[in-house]
């Protein structure tokens, strides 16, 4: 690991200032010379691999007293960015009113990592693409813009089939972000000019021609929290993977439904493990609205969700698998007891 200076930020202004001081000459955020440290489960790992090379670490854990709220209100939910994955997953009201959130967190990583990792850090988690993580590969447009993509014709079994470009097919690896995007979450961002909010769906950037730019966050900005309107007791997170536990998704689905008298009034479908960014399947969910559920409808929704999918040599199986995951998750959401 390269050496770095370490600084503890005891209030948000101090954190923003320390992170922003290096911002002017450093864009994008992923290459900023000052990086915030929360749980460290991505950052320290990638620093050991020499993929991330910050010269300064700003430890934002002292902000936890203000930024780790878990506040399910009557008809809204607020989550602080420094809340731990394990605490949110274990929260009884989250399990009751937002099972898709609780399950997306519970099914991620291991108990140890969930105790460390924060919600804000979780959505900023970097891809697990082996060519990105191994610096002995020169060709990675995410690490070295313009160098090419070793995964394109390489071992790409774990790679994305949706939202890809001719520059990058790296999968967004997280689970929780699919729950957030399905529930139309808002992300709260704290920076030099104060706090701003944006739809969570606008936080992540599809790779396009700039795979090194992963989010809309600027250097010197921090995620301080998330909010969600409404309650979603009829929601599920289904995750298919190579092992039963402690593994990234091959394909996952976050589903939230509002069913009244057998008719689906509102439907949300988001996909994980198959796309370059947290993926909302809006065309697919439109097919569900004002419909009565049956297996044929589930199949049409699943087909629509993957209509634009593009497989490569080793990952085409994800299209068939992903459709089955969507269909089964819908079935579970419709039949679950609430």
């Amino acid at each position: 690991m390269r050496s770095f200076s370490y600084q503890r930020a005891t209030d948000p202004d101090m954190a923003v200032q320390a992170l922003g001081a290096a911002a002017a000459s450093n864009n994008p955020l992923t290459k900023a010379t000052a990086q915030p440290l929360a749980g460290g489960t991505t950052l320290i790992d990638l620093m050991k691999l020499d993929v991330m090379r910050p010269a300064a670490i700003v430890d934002i854990n002292p902000l936890a007293h203000a930024w780790s709220a878990i506040e399910p209100g009557g008809d809204a939910l607020r989550l602080g960015a420094l809340a731990k994955m394990s605490d949110v997953a274990a929260h009884a009201e989250i399990q009751r009113s937002y099972p898709v959130i609780a399950d997306s967190l519970k099914l991620a990583a291991s108990a140890q990592l969930r105790n460390m990792a924060t919600l804000g850090g979780n959505v900023m988690q970097r891809t697990r693409c082996n060519y990105f993580r191994d610096v002995s590969y020169e060709n990675c447009n995410k690490r070295n813009p313009g160098s090419g993509c070793a995964a394109m014709d390489g071992v790409n079994r774990m790679h994305a089939v949706l939202g890809t470009s001719d520059q990058c097919i790296a999968t967004y690896p997280g689970d929780f972000a699919q729950a957030l995007i399905a529930l139309d979450a808002t992300v709260e961002i704290t920076g030099k000019a104060g706090t701003r909010s944006m739809p969570f769906a606008q936080l992540h950037k599809a790779p396009g021609s700039t795979p090194d730019i992963e989010t809309a966050l600027q250097p010197g900005e921090l995620i301080s929290g998330f909010s969600i309107r409404g309650r979603w007791p009829r929601s599920v997170y289904l995750k298919a993977r190579d092992r039963q536990s402690y593994e990234f998704a091959l394909s996952s689905a976050a589903i939230a439904l509002d069913v009244q008298d057998g008719t689906i009034r509102d439907a949300r479908v988001a996909l994980g493990g198959v796309a370059t960014v947290p993926w909302r399947a809006r065309e697919a969910e439109a097919l569900l609205r004002e419909q009565k559920f049956d297996e044929a409808l589930a199949q049409r929704v699943a087909d629509a969700a993957f209509a634009d999918a593009r497989g490569r040599r080793h990952n085409s199986f994800k299209i068939a698998l992903g459709k089955r995951v969507v269909a089964r998750a819908l079935q579970q959401a419709v039949t679950m007891e609430i």
């Binding site: 050496s3 770095f4 200076s5 370490y6 600084q7 320390a18 290096a22 090379r53 700003v58």
Partner: peptide
């Protein structure tokens, strides 16, 4: 210890060496 081959404009809380 590997030398930090990074931009020196980062906020320096202490000498990393």
């Amino acid at each position: 210890a590997r030398a930090a081959a990074q931009d020196a404009s980062a906020p320096v809380a202490q000498d990393p060496s």
